[in-house]
Simulated scan of single mutants.
Amino acid sequence: MPNDFPAAALPDGPFDGRHAFRAHLQTALSAAARQNWREIVLSDPEFDDWPLGERAIVDALQAWSAAGRRFVLLAQRFGVFEREHARFVHWRRMWSHIVECRACDGPGLPEVPSAIWTPSWFLHRIDVDHGRGVCGSEPEGRRALRERLDECLRHARPAFPASTLGL
């Protein structure tokens, strides 16, 4: 996957396959700094097939990171991060003051969607097994996804601490 998408437009419309999902994620995170996004929400039950440990992803997050920004990570479980996303874990520790990690897992709680949400763009993987979904900037899609995310966040608890203190 290329490390730089200087003039790539954000994707719009349906997408199909893991490769398209990964490319859309990279394009979106590369656009985050250029477009001065104040907030990014990444949501997935486990993040097991996200390329968050890749250098290009962490470099894009590093370019975006600044005071006044907010990064929300919503999942059911965070166990995969230490095993599969070491670069991301390091970035998360450095920027813990702008990163909020929440877990929504339990009987009767809403299902965590596989999605990216920003104030101006979204991506929603509707069929995770096949990597199919939709993305774009249209307000109705962003609003509907944000409502789903907010419902999960209402029930979520703090999770995936930046550091573990022990005796």
Score class of each variant (00 low, 15 high):
58 V>N: 00
34 R>F: 10
66 A>F: 11
76 Q>F: 07
81 F>G: 05
84 E>S: 13
75 A>W: 10
33 A>E: 14
83 R>W: 03
68 G>P: 04
65 S>N: 05
49 D>C: 06
22 R>G: 06
45 P>E: 09
62 Q>M: 10
64 W>Q: 02
68 G>H: 05
78 F>T: 04
67 A>L: 08
55 R>A: 14
48 D>Y: 07
38 R>N: 11
56 A>R: 13
39 E>C: 04
78 F>W: 11
65 S>F: 11
74 L>D: 03
68 G>A: 09
43 S>W: 12
86 A>D: 12
46 E>W: 12
34 R>A: 15
34 R>D: 15
86 A>K: 12
48 D>C: 02
60 A>K: 08
49 D>I: 06
74 L>R: 01
64 W>F: 13
62 Q>P: 03
77 R>G: 08
88 F>N: 01
36 N>K: 03
47 F>R: 02
58 V>D: 00
83 R>Q: 12
73 L>P: 07
80 V>C: 15
76 Q>K: 08
65 S>H: 10
71 F>K: 01
54 E>N: 12
44 D>Y: 08
78 F>G: 02
46 E>I: 00
65 S>I: 02
73 L>T: 08
34 R>L: 15
35 Q>V: 07
39 E>S: 09
36 N>M: 02
23 A>H: 14
85 H>G: 02
40 I>K: 04
55 R>D: 08
64 W>V: 10
67 A>C: 02
67 A>M: 08
87 R>W: 00
22 R>C: 04
76 Q>M: 12
51 P>L: 09
42 L>D: 05
35 Q>S: 11
60 A>N: 13
22 R>F: 04
65 S>K: 10
38 R>M: 11
26 Q>K: 01
27 T>N: 12
25 L>K: 07
41 V>R: 08
66 A>E: 15
61 L>M: 13
59 D>C: 10
27 T>P: 06
27 T>L: 07
70 R>W: 09
77 R>D: 15
86 A>H: 10
41 V>P: 01
30 S>T: 13
56 A>E: 14
47 F>D: 03
78 F>I: 02
68 G>L: 04
29 L>T: 12
40 I>C: 06
59 D>L: 13
31 A>L: 07
74 L>S: 04
83 R>V: 09
74 L>N: 03
50 W>N: 01
42 L>Q: 07
68 G>N: 09
41 V>K: 00
45 P>L: 06
63 A>W: 06
53 G>D: 11
51 P>V: 08
76 Q>H: 05
76 Q>P: 02
42 L>S: 08
21 F>N: 01
27 T>V: 15
40 I>L: 13
23 A>T: 13
57 I>F: 12
66 A>V: 03
23 A>Y: 05
61 L>A: 09
54 E>R: 14
65 S>L: 04
70 R>D: 09
34 R>G: 15
85 H>W: 08
71 F>C: 02
